[in-house]
Each structure stands twice: as C-alpha cells, then as structure tokens.
C-alpha cells in the first residue's frame, strides 16, 4: 500500500493528455515506460525527443508504429546528447533567420544508464559544457537491460547481472554506482536533479524547472526494472520509494550549484527492506548488506551536509 499520501490526493491532478501511447512493447511493470508518460505530461506537445538506442527506443518505435505523440528521433546509442545539440542549434538558427516561427520548443535527449554513464558520457559532457538550451534525461534501470541485463557503471555495488554474476569468487558488481548528477554539477550548468518514478509530482516539477532554465539541465530519474532486478512485476513503484527511503537513491536538485534535498528522509529505513524483494541481491550476506548500507548512509550524510552548506 502506498505510504505517500500526497499521491492519493494529487493523482487526479495528473495532466490527462497521453503523449506516450499504450501498445508499446515494454515488459510488464516497466518503470522507465512510466517515466516517459510523466516526462511528456510535464513537458507537453512542444517537445522534441532525441532518444539513444536502448530499452525505450526499442519498445516505442518498432516500424510502422510509434508510441510517441511528439517529434522523436533516434540516431545511435552514444550520441543522443550530440543529436540534441544539433536539433537545438538548428532550431535556434532557423528561428533567428526567420525560416521557422519563433516558438518555445523543449529539446530533450535521453538514454538509459549505459547510454548515459558509459558510452554516452562524452557526448553528454560536451553538450552540457557547450551550454545548449536542452534537457538531458537519464532513465536509470541500473544495467543494460535491453541486451539482457549486463552491468553498467550505473549498476550498484552488490547487484548480480549477467556480466557481474555472483559466484564463489564474486559478490556481483564490485564497483560503485556512478553519480551522474554530480558529474553534471561539475559542468556548472543551471539545473541538475535526481528523480524517481515513485514520486511523479516531484519528477514532473523538476522537468518543468529543467525546461524553464535557459541553458542545459540534467535529470537522472530512477526507474526500477522488474525483469532485470529479478523481482515481481508489481513492485517497481514500491522499490523506487524504498530506494529513496533507504538512501540508495536520494532525491535532490542543484540549482545554480546549490544543493537541495527534495525528499528529506530524517529516519532512513533499513536497506534490507529495499534489497530483499530483488533477486539480484539474493546472494548478499548480512555483513555485505551492512557494509553497503553504511556506505550509502555515509554518502547521504555528505549530501545533507552539501544541502545545508548551500543554504548558508
């Protein structure tokens, strides 16, 4: 049962228009697909999407059908940020030269965690640094799910994937999840935020802020994948909530370099509640879970300190 009562009262305030159509081919209970719904509810029809290769691209654009109700382009895997740079520059030049009418159009590039944190990182860094007026959104399901659940640099410590399996000599992924939002912050751009599908209004508010700023914005949205996380198809939203409540994925925004935690969790829940329902963590011992929880809490403390320092 939902513990977030704001949702109960606010659900009907969700914009009605659906610009991401049913009939898409995402797995049952796919949170990234839900993220697409929210993203377009927040940004509306005057939006152009540049999509990297990945789950969302594959499940939404199988010729001759498309799930998209906005103009959408897919070029390749590692380059949606560069493609969006071109779209933004093209629109800007053509509006300035009077070739097309002046109009506010939001350009959004997006990829999964692999397409963002691994193969696409250079193109994202370039686009952010150049200052294009665009949003980059990473929908993070913590592995290369489309190719069959291989580890990425967004896969958390301890998670078993098909290329970071748990075995007698391994406890799954043995590296730390990359902090994409903090990498974006290091580009000194006007807006950076983390978000989670379990907090749709927080997520949509952040998208609107990202669209409103003049310059680049990055949103890192946490989107559980029941198929890849080896869990039941009905718990993606519950897991997203637990990830926030256990500090596995804290929600914050960084406006002009100033950190603010947007979902305060004064009493973090035991990490075990979050890991327990997921098959990818089945192999972890209590000691390992303790270790991981300690590290996540230490980092959450650093984040809280940054947010407090930002208020001074």
């Amino acid at each position: 049962m939902s513990s977030d009562l704001t949702n109960v009262f606010a659900a009907k305030m969700l914009p009605k228009r659906e610009l991401f159509s049913p009939g898409h081919r995402a797995c049952q209970g796919c949170a990234p697909a839900l993220a697409m719904r929210y993203m377009l509810k927040a940004l509306g029809p005057d939006t152009i999407i540049c999509n990297s290769t990945g789950c969302i691209e594959i499940i939404s654009s199988s010729y001759p059908e498309s799930a998209w109700g906005v103009p959408w382009i897919h070029v390749a895997f590692e380059n949606s940020a560069a493609v969006a740079s071109g779209v933004e520059a093209g629109l800007k030049a053509m509006m300035r030269k009077g070739r097309i009418p002046q109009r506010k159009i939001t350009v959004l590039a997006q990829a999964g965690d692999g397409g963002s944190m691994d193969i696409g990182l250079q193109a994202i860094s370039g686009a952010l640094e150049r200052g294009h007026d665009m949003i980059y959104m990473c929908y993070d399901n913590e592995a290369y799910m489309n190719t069959g659940i291989q580890r990425s640099s967004g896969t958390p410590w301890g998670a078993a994937t098909t290329t970071s399996p748990a075995g007698t000599q391994s406890s799954g992924q043995n590296t730390w999840k990359k902090s994409l939002a903090e990498i974006a912050v290091a580009h000194h751009i006007p807006y950076v935020a983390t978000a989670c599908v379990s907090y749709p209004f927080d997520f949509m508010e952040k998208l609107k802020k990202a669209a409103a700023v003049n310059g680049p914005a990055l949103i890192h949205v946490f989107a559980p994948c029941p198929t890849g996380w080896r869990c039941a198809s009905d718990i993606a939203i519950r897991l997203g909530r637990l990830a926030v409540q256990t500090a596995a994925f804290p929600l914050y925004e960084v406006v002009d370099g100033k950190f603010r935690i947007t979902q305060n969790v004064p009493h973090l829940k035991p990490l075990k509640l979050y890991l327990g329902p997921q098959g990818r963590y089945n192999h972890l011992t209590d000691d390992q879970i303790e270790y991981l929880q300690g590290e996540l809490r230490r980092r959450y403390g650093l984040l809280v300190a940054k947010a407090e320092a930002s208020q001074e």
Binding site: I48, C50, I73, V75, A76, E78, N79, A81, A82, V83, A84, S85, G86, V87, E88, A89, G90, L91, K92, A93, M94, R99, I100, Q122, A123, S125, G126, E129, R130
Partner: peptide, 24 residues
C-alpha cells in the same frame, strides 16, 4: 549560423544529423 564546437567527430556527425533533422 550556429557554430557548434563539438567534443569529437563522432559528435560532429551526430550533431549534423540532429541539425538536418530539425530542417537546417
């Protein structure tokens, strides 16, 4: 014109694709 000093040739060609697709 918009002169876009991209960070690699891979992005140069990707940026070209986006720009042409936008109609420029």
């Amino acid at each position: 014109a918009e002169f876009v000093p991209v960070e690699s040739e891979h992005s140069a060609m990707s940026c070209c694709c986006g720009s042409v697709a936008a109609g420029a």
